[in-house]
């Protein structure tokens, strides 16, 4: 019967859940979200694309002319790319809402602007 007392007590408490998407809780510091590239630091070595476990990173060209295509729909958010980057050009963001109706909108392109 111990649970009945507990259940009645909770009738008068706030709900444990949030009314998402109207209320949102910010992810904690160090959350592994979508990676973003700082192309001014990138040297185009291609290590991120070779290390990626799910083939979510495509590198077109080499060196400073390299373009990076990041497919969020394949991304595991493991952060291995950011860990492997010798120039610390990849940072993990805080966003986690990537759902979309089309796959094309889930491709992010990065290019060095001179």
């Amino acid at each position: 019967m111990a649970i009945i007392v507990e259940a009645i007590k909770h009738l008068f408490k706030r709900p444990a859940t949030l009314r998402y998407p109207f209320e949102k809780e910010a992810p904690p510091k160090g959350f592994r979200g979508r990676p973003i590239w700082d192309m001014h630091r990138c040297v185009g070595c291609g290590l991120c694309s070779r290390m990626c476990p799910s083939g979510a990173i495509e590198m077109i060209g080499r060196g400073h002319e390299a373009r990076i295509k990041h497919y969020v729909d394949r991304c595991l958010f493991c952060g291995q790319c950011s860990e492997s980057c010798p120039r610390n050009a990849i940072r993990l963001m805080n966003d986690f809402e990537h759902a979309s109706y089309s796959r094309d909108s889930m491709i992010y392109e990065y290019k060095r602007e001179s």
Binding site: A16, P28, G30, F31, R32, L76, F77, C78, G79, L92
Partner: peptide
Amino acid sequence: REAVMDILELISGNRVHYA
């Protein structure tokens, strides 16, 4: 159980796949 999930997220950066 959410309490322990929150600690794991705080430590590792993800609720389920801690990596």
